[in-house]
Design a protein around this nucleic acid. Structure first.
Length: 1097
RNA sequence: GGGCGUAUAGCUCAGCUGGUUAGAGCGCAAUCCUGAUAAGAUUGAGGUCCCUAGUUCGAGUCUAGGUACGCCCA
């Protein structure tokens, strides 16, 4: 045996500060290039796609969650021996967010400012600005131990990336999946561009205050003209009537082209006057809405079906204006049409149709002209200057238009409405529905494929697949992919002057061939790419269309573009599609999850990813969204510095399932730290302290985990620990392979708790004892194996603390071991060590111990006071299992004898209940009668039943007029509380303590009490664990001094050796205390004594 | 208005295919234990398992309707 203190392990600081420890580990990783080594390791590929963040903002608290959940799976797979592909940084660099940032910086307020400034200079600014926070992101990722390769980042603005995107566009073009169409888009007048649906969805605001106007459209009994052959049959009846239509967007009224009714709904002609002073007028609207719109003052004169109204004409509110340079065909305008989309839920049942601003589909269907009232800057047309509302922002024009109509007597009623309205998600400008030429990806053509491939994706949580995401796919619409902006991937579409000929270019080489010169030095961005033109002999000068791509297209196409596929890395790509794993927050269902999936499906007819963890949003401790305006943001670095990253990560993994919105508070991290991290750390510290003291060290084989363990040769509790450990390995592996992180973390917590509070507590003496025998070695081996295995299990969760423990426990003992836990192999199950029965039996033991303590508590009996006997009653199999642990049970409950209650044990009675699981299925409606009959059994019969059940025999239960034969498995027998015992029971188990304290037990109790107080005194006296003492005890007396003196003499006589051994006392004297002693007064219940201790060398 | 999700102790969460006294941790109170422990044990207080109806011998669990909250969409 080696000398004390000459241990192989570094001493463990039990006052560890985890943040400082983590910094040390970070430095060590850097020095030894552990990240690089980990990235390069493994054989079978495991493919990950990094969803690229935009680096023009600071990383926030929510990024810790997504990055941690990404990281844990990658570490786990890496430890399983996979080579993780795609473990690289990715940066989303294009798009409106970046442009907005630069615009702000330059004090711009829209596209005209940018054009004046120059696109080249503007884009240069954009290119710079995306790297504003890159250092902070890298520092952040490194600190939370999210291991990505920073030297192999994919960057969406690079030429090679853009070239791949061009290839994607060309593929889509060739397959007729890319097309141009006039469609209504959500247009931001400030940004001057259409927004995609997912962008629009980001900017809906509730409770927006808007005007609400009911307008008269005066019926025009016009002469018959084509396409209507004759005067409308209702023309005469409605001669003086007005149609009433409702809108919340008065600014669209000048663009009105038609009114729509529901063909099947009932409409009425009413006579209406709001009060006696107002002349009555005739109005037409839906019958169902008369009350709501006009109240009580309307009298119905006629009723019609909606379809009867078709073709009626009305007086236009304004002279219609078409788009610039185009003749307007008003032949079909200003008529009533009927369509199913018209709802009767609000409004008047008559819908004002403005094709340019939202009703383009209807307009097309009925041949309506597309009329305009507002231009792309959101300003009303100059045409309306004369009417007093020209060249105004559309929202500002609203009241003026309303006033104008009122003056003309066309406004029936005005009000305000509070509803949801879309705003630009970046600049908060209200959006316009606007019919514009746009480029679309025809995702609807592959709708069924999108849906089918989604079925192959494993979603966590599962409900996203057929819920949120599945629904989104079911309602798929074509993807508006063009943006009339500057800083983005230029659409590779060239067209001639009149737009009659379009070519889609799929590579730089192809473009070079067109223009006949090298473009190797060309920046593929605007404005440079716009200057690339060529003359087509047939079609004339070919110019690029000005649009750039939706930046969601950039990130969705990362599955090909990150490799510069197909221009390079073809074999790499072949391995790296689809991704085995991605992970982002739930807001990406319509963002990145969708664009990845859409591009994967359209391009390869395959899913782009097969497993995805979809994270809920982070909320503060009150369930409020974290936001700067609320001031409830948690600053990540503060948490790192206070608690460390491991505690934070662990909390995020274990506290609640990741799919739910997550309430977060620092209190939780603090709890995780104390509850889990410190428990583990202290257990580890315990092992190291004693191993060093004893000079115990693991063999290299044991350190490596290859030393065979023979359970049959080990004490039961060691076998339990190892069985439990292997069960844990099994559970954790299965959970992580199913991408279920939380159950894995919770199982580990449970094990660490039991290891510390059962295994170590029960076995302390095996580590303390002086003889270095096989039993001691077994204890060290067991605890060591548990700790090393747990360390590897938690490595993906808590990369720092696991590294610290691993370095000390393993690398120190086995020079051939991998230098980092993250280069080690994830533990695998050793089936020979599994023992389900043993694990179950131990669970029973723990339950019975807990009941015994409860019983002691009730009777107010300290555990230190030994008792004579405990009676235990449980199921026969439980009691059988318990017998294996009788020593532990005696020890834990401090009783001399464990006895088992059997059917014949006279001092308990029995009550019987049906075993519902069994009986319920078999007897159904008879259950209540059986329950009653069993409960009504008298004591003797119940005992007879107990006896039968114990013997495994059926018995007869009288039930009304008949008798029922019940099998022993169909009934549960419980013992009732006997008198004179301290009893606790739960779940059918009963523990009864005999509370009689004999003089012998009393003396032993006093001895133990004395020992504990001496140990306390040793501690206060500042003695070392191994110091020897002389111990003096003087009876002070608080009652009958002589009797107390006698009692203590007896104690010292009977238990003197025990007391000396426990307290390392070389002598023990009852009498006066010497002056030199450290003294303390101790109340031993039946006697008060002074104890004095003196250190002897 | 529609879709998805959530609702269990003061807080954070378990509760498997319906079954016997609904659990854990934290927090609070009290007691105890402790020479690894910043820990631990026990007890107590604290629950109309959101509400209503239904299915069933039996519902926290299944069904329907409703309420509240969150997210997404209109």
């Amino acid at each position: 045996m080696q000398q004390q203190g000459a241990g192989v392990f570094q001493p463990v600081n039990t006052n560890v500060r985890f943040p400082a420890l983590e910094e040390e580990i970070l430095a060590w990783w850097r020095e030894n290039q552990i990240v690089e080594k980990s990235l390069a390791a493994g054989d079978q590929p495991f493919v990950f796609y990094e969803g690229p963040p935009t680096a023009n903002g600071r990383p926030g608290f929510h990024h810790i969650i997504s990055r941690s959940f990404k990281d844990i799976i990658l570490r786990f797979r890496a430890m399983q021996g996979y080579r993780v592909i795609g473990r690289r940084e990715g940066w989303d660099t294009h798009g409106l967010p970046v442009e907005i940032e630069v615009e702000k910086q330059l004090g711009f307020s829209g596209k005209p400012d940018i054009e004046r400034y120059g696109i080249a200079a503007f884009n240069a600014k954009c290119r710079e600005s995306v790297w504003n926070y890159i250092q902070e992101w890298r520092r952040f990722s490194e600190r939370i131990a999210f291991w990505l390769d920073p030297n192999d980042a994919y960057i969406t603005y690079e030429n090679r990336y853009i070239e791949s995107l061009w290839w994607v566009f060309a593929q889509l073009w060739q397959r007729d999946l890319l097309f141009r169409d006039y469609k209504v888009t959500m247009h931001c007048p400030r940004c001057g561009t259409s927004l995609s649906d997912h962008e629009v969805s980001l900017g809906f605001k509730d409770g927006v205050d808007d005007p609400s106007v009911w307008v008269r459209f005066r019926h025009l009994p016009a002469p018959a003209d084509p396409p209507y052959a004759a005067q409308h049959p209702l023309a005469e009846r409605l001669a003086d009537a007005s149609f009433v239509a409702w809108t919340t967007t008065p600014w669209t009224l000048p663009a009105n082209a038609a009114l729509a009714v529901n063909p099947d709904a009932e409409y009425v002609l009413v006579e209406y006057a709001p009060d006696a002073d107002t002349p009555t007028e005739q109005l037409v609207l839906a019958a169902a809405l008369v009350q709501q719109v006009l109240g009580e003052h309307a009298t119905v004169r006629h009723r019609f079906r909606g379809r009867e109204l078709v073709g009626l004409r009305y007086v236009p509110l304004f002279q219609g204006v078409g788009s610039a340079g185009e003749a307007v065909d008003l032949r079909n305008a200003y008529r009533v049409l009927a369509d199913d989309f018209v709802s009767l839920e609000d409004g008047t049942g008559i819908v004002h149709i403005a094709p340019a601003y939202g009703d383009l589909e209807i307009g097309k269907r009925y041949g309506l002209p597309t009329l305009f009232s507002v231009d792309l800057n959101g300003k009303t047309l100059a045409t309306y200057n004369d009417l007093g509302f020209g060249e105004l922002f559309f929202k500002e024009a609203d009241p003026l238009i309303a006033r104008h109509l009122k003056e003309r007597g066309l406004m029936l009623k005005t009000g305000r409405v509070s509803h949801a309205y879309p705003f630009c998600w970046r600049c908060s400008t209200p959006l316009l529905y606007y019919a514009k030429p746009s480029w679309y990806i025809r995702t609807t053509a592959k709708k069924q494929e999108l849906i089918n491939h989604n079925q192959a994706i494993h979603w966590v949580p599962e409900h996203i697949r057929d819920g949120r995401f599945g629904n989104w796919l079911e309602n798929n619409i074509d993807w508006a992919v063009s943006r009339e902006r500057y800083w983005g991937t230029p659409l590779p579409l060239w067209t001639n002057e009149d737009g009659s000929h379009i070519e889609c270019i799929g590579s730089v080489a192809e473009l070079e061939a067109k223009v006949g010169r090298s473009l190797q030095d060309l920046d593929l961005h605007r404005p440079y790419v716009d200057d690339v033109t060529w003359n087509d002999p047939q079609h004339g000068l070919m110019r690029r269309i000005p649009d750039v791509a939706d930046c969601w297209f950039d990130s969705g196409a990362m599955q090909v573009a990150q490799w510069h596929y197909p221009f390079a890395n073809q074999s790499q790509f072949a391995q790296a599609h689809p991704a085995d794993y991605i992970c982002e927050a739930v807001d990406q269902t319509r963002g990145w999850f969708y664009t990845l999936h859409a591009i994967g499906t359209l391009l390869f007819d395959a899913p782009a990813f097969t497993n995805v963890i979809c994270l809920g949003h982070i909320l503060d401790e009150h369930g409020q969204k974290m936001s700067k305006s609320r001031g409830n943001i948690i600053e990540p670095w503060g948490v790192f510095e206070q608690y460390g990253v491991d505690a934070l990560r662990w909390n995020l993994f274990a506290a609640s399932p990741p799919g739910n919105p997550r309430r977060f508070s620092l209190k939780q991290v603090d709890e995780t730290l104390r509850q889990f991290m410190l428990t583990l750390w202290n257990t580890y510290g315990f092992l190291v302290t004693y191993a060093n003291l004893d000079g115990w060290q693991p063999s290299p084989e044991l350190a490596r985990g290859t030393a065979p363990l023979h359970p049959a040769e080990l004490p039961l509790i060691d076998r339990w620990a190892l069985a439990s450990l292997n069960k844990l390995v099994q559970e954790v592996t299965m959970s992580l392979e199913a991408y279920e992180v939380t159950p894995a973390a919770r199982a580990i917590e449970q094990f660490v708790d039991e290891l510390s509070n059962w295994y170590v507590r029960r076995n302390r003496r095996r580590f303390w004892k002086s003889e270095a025998d096989a039993d001691k070695h077994a204890a060290y081996t067991t605890l060591y194996t548990c700790l090393v295995t747990v360390t590897k299990l938690i490595a993906p969760f808590a990369p720092f603390v696991s590294e610290a423990i691993y370095r000390n426990l393993v690398v120190a003992a086995d020079p051939a071991a991998p230098e980092s836990v993250h280069l080690a192999r994830f533990p695998t199950v050793q089936p020979a060590l599994l023992d389900e029965q043993l694990v179950m039996d131990t669970a029973v033991l723990l339950r019975v111990v807990s009941l015994g303590r409860a019983a002691r508590k009730q009777a107010n009996l300290k555990v230190r006071q030994p008792l004579g006997e405990v009676w235990v009653r449980a199921t026969p199999s439980e009691m059988q299992g318990l017998q294996r642990f009788e020593d532990d049970l005696r020890d834990e409950l401090n009783v001399k004898q464990v006895r088992y209650v059997e059917a014949d044990t006279s001092f308990v009675n029995y009550r019987c209940k049906p075993n519902l699981r069994v009986v319920g299925k078999k007897y159904g409606k008879q259950v209540p009668a059986i329950t009653a009959a069993l409960a009504a059994l008298d004591n003797d019969t119940a005992r007879a039943v107990a006896r039968a059940v114990e013997a495994g025999l059926p018995f007869n239960l009288p039930l009304g007029a008949t008798t029922l034969e019940l099998a022993p498995t169909e009934v549960l027998v419980e013992a009732t509380s006997p008198d004179g015992y301290a009893v606790a029971e739960s779940d059918g188990a009963l523990v009864a303590l005999n509370t009689t304290i004999t003089p012998d037990l009393r003396r032993e109790g006093l001895a133990r009490e004395l020992v504990r107080n001496v140990q306390d005194a040793r501690k206060t006296a500042g003695l070392d664990i191994s110091d020897r003492i002389a111990l003096y005890v003087a009876v002070v007396g608080n009652g009958d001094h002589a009797a107390e003196q006698t009692l203590m003499q007896d104690v010292v006589q009977v238990w003197g050796e025990y007391i000396r051994n426990e307290t390392l006392a070389t002598r023990l004297e009852l009498g006066a205390l010497p002056d030199v002693a450290h003294t303390e007064s101790v109340d031993l219940d039946v006697a008060t004594v002074q104890i004095g201790i003196v250190r002897v060398s």
